[in-house]
């Protein structure tokens, strides 16, 4: 099967049930997508499939055949997506492990809904756990990326 990851085409012939998470990590060496739970409960593995945020750990290779997958490494050419910039301005991370998933989730939200309400931000980010507890800054950063303030 064919799959596009960060604009590069790849051919995959392995186990079709393999989650995209393990494909990008083990086969493509893209380590920015993280494993946190394997069951769709934490969001550490969030990637975009045709622009939609999905859990890489519960999305099989079969489900993404012929589709476009974007990982954190492909979110922007230079790493300066407005969400990434907002994250830096707010000095969001503690350990940082959850943050790529958080950023991918936030970027997908803002692509679809550039001016979310506070409640929409909270609801949209609720699938992404941050055990270090950076939520206050995560929410501010999403707001900043959305409104510029």
């Amino acid at each position: 099967m064919k799959i596009t990851v960060n604009n590069a085409e790849h051919v995959f012939e392995g186990d079709k049930s393999m989650p995209v998470l393990w494909y990008v990590r083990d086969e493509l060496g893209l380590m920015g997508t993280k494993y946190g739970c394997g069951t769709g409960l934490c969001g550490a593995c969030t990637v975009h499939v045709d622009g939609m945020a999905v859990h890489g750990c519960t999305t099989s290779m079969e489900a993404v055949a012929g589709k476009k997958v974007t990982t954190i490494e492909g979110l922007s050419e230079d790493g300066n997506h407005p969400v990434q910039q907002a994250w830096r301005e707010q000095n969001v991370p503690q350990c940082g492990f959850c943050q790529t998933g958080q950023i991918m989730q936030a970027a997908a939200l803002l692509a679809e809904n550039p001016n979310p309400t506070d409640q929409e931000i909270l609801d949209n980010m609720a699938g992404n756990i941050c055990r270090c507890g950076c939520y206050q800054r995560i929410i501010s950063a999403v707001r900043q990326a959305s409104t510029g303030a």
Binding site: L30, M31, G32, T33, T71, I72, E73, G79, Q84, W87, R88, N91, P93, G96, Q99, T100, I103
Partner: peptide
């Protein structure tokens, strides 16, 4: 590590 964390 801020830049590296936010770029994966």
């Amino acid at each position: 590590d801020l830049h590296d964390i936010t770029t994966g």
